[in-house]
Simulated assay, not measured.
Amino acid sequence: MIKLKLAELLARRRLSIVELSDRTGISVRDLEVLRDQKALALRLKTIDCLCRCLNCQPSDLIEYVEDAD
């Protein structure tokens, strides 16, 4: 399973979804979908935008976690 670590990054940087939206131009709703692990797909352009804004690598944002099954 792919896990998005947006919530952890935002918490570490003390940044809100609204602030991130203002900085990136990505809608609050789309960021909430990513934060809440509801996304079915993620564009490379979005990953690039988030990494630029959060000054991180894609691996800081995305993690592969094996299913418990």
Rank of each mutant, 00 (worst) to 15 (best):
Y64D: 03
A7W: 11
P58A: 00
L61Y: 02
S21V: 05
V18D: 15
L6Y: 03
K45C: 07
L15A: 06
L9S: 00
L44C: 03
K45D: 15
L20A: 06
I47H: 01
L15T: 09
I2R: 02
E63D: 04
L6A: 00
G25T: 07
D36I: 05
L15E: 06
D67R: 15
Q37M: 08
R23K: 15
S59I: 00
D30L: 12
L9Q: 07
V18L: 14
Y64L: 09
D60C: 05
V28D: 14
R43W: 07
L20S: 06
A11T: 13
A68W: 10
Q37C: 04
L44Y: 04
R29Q: 10
M1W: 09
R52D: 11
C51R: 00
L61Q: 01
I26C: 04
T46L: 02
L54N: 06
T24S: 04
Q57L: 05
Q57P: 01
Y64P: 09
D60A: 03
V33T: 03
T24E: 03
V28R: 15
I2N: 01
R35A: 13
R35L: 09
V65M: 12
E32Q: 15
C49R: 11
L9Y: 06
L54G: 00
E63Y: 09
R43Q: 13
I26S: 05
P58Y: 03
R43D: 10
R12C: 13
S16Y: 11
L40Y: 09
C56T: 01
A11N: 12
L40R: 14
S21D: 02
Q37T: 02
L6K: 01
D36V: 05
A41E: 10
R52P: 07
N55V: 09
T24F: 08
E19C: 11
S59Y: 01
C53G: 04
E19S: 13
R29T: 07
D69N: 13
C56S: 04
I2K: 02
R12A: 15
M1C: 08
E66T: 07
I17R: 07
L20I: 00
L20T: 00
E8C: 06
L9G: 03
L50P: 03
D60L: 02
D30S: 15
K3D: 02
P58F: 01
R52T: 13
R52M: 10
D36Y: 08
E19W: 10
R52L: 12
G25N: 06
L40H: 12
L9F: 08
T46E: 04
D22H: 13
I62L: 02
L31W: 09
V18G: 12
C49N: 13
E63V: 05
K5S: 11
R35E: 10
I26Y: 06
V65G: 02
D48I: 07
Q57A: 06
E8Q: 14
R23G: 09
Q57V: 04
G25Q: 07
R29E: 11
V65I: 14
E19R: 13
I26W: 07
K38A: 09
R29L: 08
L6I: 00
R23A: 14
R43N: 09
G25C: 09
C53S: 10
R35N: 06
A39D: 05
L10M: 10
I2Q: 00
Q37I: 01
I26Q: 01
